[in-house]
Simulated assay, not measured.
Amino acid sequence: MSYYSDASSEDMHDELETLGWYHYDLSRHAAEALLLSNGTVGSYLLRNSNGGPDCFALSVKAQDSVKHFHVTRTEDGYMFGFNKFTSLQQFVSHFANQPLLGSDTGTLMVLKSPYPWRVEEPSIYESVRVHTAIQSGRTGNDLVADAPPLGTKEGYLVKQGAFVKNWKQRWFTLNRYELKYFRDKMCEEPIRTLDLRACSAVQFDYSHNRVNSFCLVFPDRTFYLCANTGVEADEWIKILRWKLSQIQKGR
């Protein structure tokens, strides 16, 4: 099915400027980290690709991964595969009812919720070009309700003790460059706050007889953590590694 119109390049340029989910020069890696940590299945965003000024990538969160689709701007619309759309909003409306197909795995996905770029984060993440609604001066009508800040994550992990090598469940929160853990979700005071600026590596751990285990390497100690599922472990590792990469860039 194809769509054609007399849409001008200027109209399409104006549409991009007002599109609340266009993240322009957000990288592929950063898009994956953002959607995996904060998005839900069907969350999507548009970003520039390396193919040229009229080439874009639509990044969509699947069940346990992020899929990327090529979108090309022409003189009178947008091309996606063999389909042509007069506007990006028409493209989204079309695929809100008909699923996208991830060709590498055959995964079917429906575009459910745009991920906005107007969310707050510290200056260390300027490379991902995140802005606030106040800075934009525009309304928040196209924002996802209660969208969490970029790069935050929380959840239960099992942690190995420092001296007695037993494993206990703790509630972890990740915000900016601080990883805190609490006795449980209801506690207000953390047991400890880890400063990721001192962390040298985040990696899977195969030294313990536990699946879904990973570790954070600090100068004075390596913290061993375990997630409930492989998907959760992968999400934690990806967002933590992304944090470290952004900290390195800010130095």
Rank of each mutant, 00 (worst) to 15 (best):
M1D: 13
S2G: 15
Y4M: 01
E10H: 14
E10P: 00
E15Q: 08
L16P: 06
E17Q: 11
E17F: 00
E17N: 06
L19H: 03
R28G: 12
H29T: 14
A31N: 07
A33Y: 04
L35E: 00
S37I: 02
S37T: 05
G42L: 05
R47E: 05
N48A: 10
S49R: 09
G52R: 06
D54Q: 08
F56L: 05
S59D: 08
A62D: 00
A62L: 00
F69Y: 15
F69T: 01
V71S: 08
T72W: 07
R73M: 02
E75Q: 14
G77M: 09
M79S: 11
F85S: 06
S87C: 03
S87M: 03
Q90K: 08
Q90T: 09
F91R: 04
V92A: 06
S93N: 15
F95I: 02
F95H: 13
A96E: 14
P99K: 09
L100W: 03
G102A: 15
S103I: 13
L108Y: 07
M109W: 06
P114H: 02
P114V: 01
P116A: 00
W117K: 12
E120S: 11
Y125H: 04
Y125C: 09
R129Q: 11
R129W: 02
I134G: 05
S136M: 12
G137D: 03
G137Q: 07
R138W: 08
T139P: 00
T139H: 07
D142W: 11
L143M: 13
A145H: 05
A145N: 04
D146C: 08
D146I: 02
Y156H: 11
L157M: 08
V158A: 10
K159M: 11
G161H: 02
A162M: 09
F163L: 13
W167E: 02
W167C: 07
K168Q: 13
W171F: 12
W171H: 13
F172T: 06
L174I: 06
E178A: 13
K180F: 01
F182E: 04
F182W: 04
R183Y: 07
K185I: 09
E189N: 12
P190T: 04
T193W: 02
A198G: 15
A198L: 12
S200V: 10
V202A: 05
Q203N: 10
F204M: 12
F204G: 10
Y206G: 08
N209C: 13
R210S: 04
N212G: 03
S213M: 04
L216P: 10
V217P: 04
V217N: 08
D220L: 07
R221L: 07
F223H: 15
L225Y: 03
N228G: 15
T229F: 00
A233W: 00
I237L: 02
K238H: 06
I239G: 06
L240Q: 07
L240V: 02
R241N: 14
R241F: 01
Q248E: 10
R251Q: 14
